[in-house]
């Protein structure tokens, strides 16, 4: 039997919830951060940088580096590693400053 983190701690999670990420539905476990839900789905990057448009995702994992910024339910610049996934959340990959709506 393959080892995995859930098996290691004998996890018996509550029923999975689902979030919308970039138009597709991803499962998440209650209490997981958005970053954890994305990692579980094999998604490692969800943001591009302002200048170089380079892909970024979670780095420090504890809310310090702000590399994992993401738009949650329309609010940009949320730290994916800290924000808990909630059922029905709409999570959008973020480009640059994430505030293109203000440019007019």
């Amino acid at each position: 039997m393959p080892r995995d983190p859930a098996g290691l701690v004998r996890s018996r999670p509550q029923p999975a919830i689902s979030i919308d990420y970039a138009g597709s539905t991803l499962p998440a476990l209650p209490g997981q951060s958005i970053a954890a839900a994305l990692w579980a789905a094999g998604v490692l990057s969800w943001r591009t940088t302002r200048d170089g448009r380079r892909p970024r995702g979670a780095f420090c994992g504890i809310g310090v580096c702000f590399d994992c910024l993401i738009t949650v339910n329309g609010r940009p610049n949320q730290r994916a590693c800290l924000v808990p996934a909630r059922d029905g959340d709409t999570v959008t990959p973020q480009e640059g400053h994430g505030r293109a709506d203000l440019a007019r």
């Binding site: 302002r50 610049n77 640059g96 400053h97 505030r99 293109a100 203000l102 440019a103």
Partner: peptide
């Protein structure tokens, strides 16, 4: 005070 980076607001 310095804000987060923004487009030209």
């Amino acid at each position: 005070l310095v804000t987060e980076p923004l487009p030209r607001v």
